[in-house]
Design a protein around this nucleic acid. Sequence first.
DNA 1: CTACAACTGCAATGGGTCGC
DNA 2: GCGACCCATTGCAGTTGTAG
Length: 268
Amino acid sequence: MRVIPQRLRGEQIPDRVEVRGEIYMSTRSFEKLNEEMKDSRLFANPRNAAAGSLRQKDSRITASRHLDFFGYQIGYMQGMDFTNQWEALQLIREWGFPVNPHIHLARTLDEVMDYCKKWEQERFNLPYEIDGVVIKISDLAQQQELGTVARDPRWAIAFKYPPTQVATQLLDIRVNIGRTGSVNPWAVLEPVNIRGVTVARAALHNEGDVQRKDLRVGDWVLVQRAGEVIPQVVKPIVERRTGKEQVYHLPERCPLCDTPIIRIPDQA
DNA sequence: CTACAACTGCAATGGGTCGC
DNA sequence: GCGACCCATTGCAGTTGTAG
């Protein structure tokens, strides 16, 4: 990736450093790539094109894909110091890494909210696709104090814009039997294109989830991709019901081996 | 040559265990 | 009883490796 500096630039160079960031593909590079691919299969969207480009075994192919990069964090650093996120970003930029030019140091929660709202519309003018804004506590001492739960830091969170919702028909509800014996219903959908990908199935998790949403076989439903990726049935479109929709019940026996299905009391 | 399994990131759900 | 943590399950696009 040409945008990654081969040598750190600037005055202050640490002995050893880990720069973390996000690799992406601009809308323009994505469209160009698909033009070049004209004979073979096209990439569905920039996100998957970027992911696939990274997984190439031959790095020359990766290099030809015009991937881009924004540094957003220093993971480890030896021989230097910084006290907050803002300084870290300045350092990363001085070393020659691209840093997002739209970073903003907010002083109040209102300011954070305004920033998120502002970009909900303005994001469409960016040369790449985004699905939200990352909000961080700048002060490193406060980050330390807040700590991390599992893999999620308590000092950073992503604000996601509402994903695109599309209407389609719930053709059927079927069940899978998991390795542990769990009975997992899933939705068979009339395939729909949601921003580049075809969605034909979605997990419904359990019977309670189906009942809470009041999903009926034959319903028109709203479907989205949570986090712009995972297919999810949001809710039925009740106004479009004809009366022919079927209320769903779990089968009484395993569709594979005919063993009776039991429900453990107080469990999903 | 095609088909398919394994793996990855992404989110949302639930269950089980441990320690306080 | 709750927080923390780990695991299971689900689907799509993509690459890689292997089976047929």
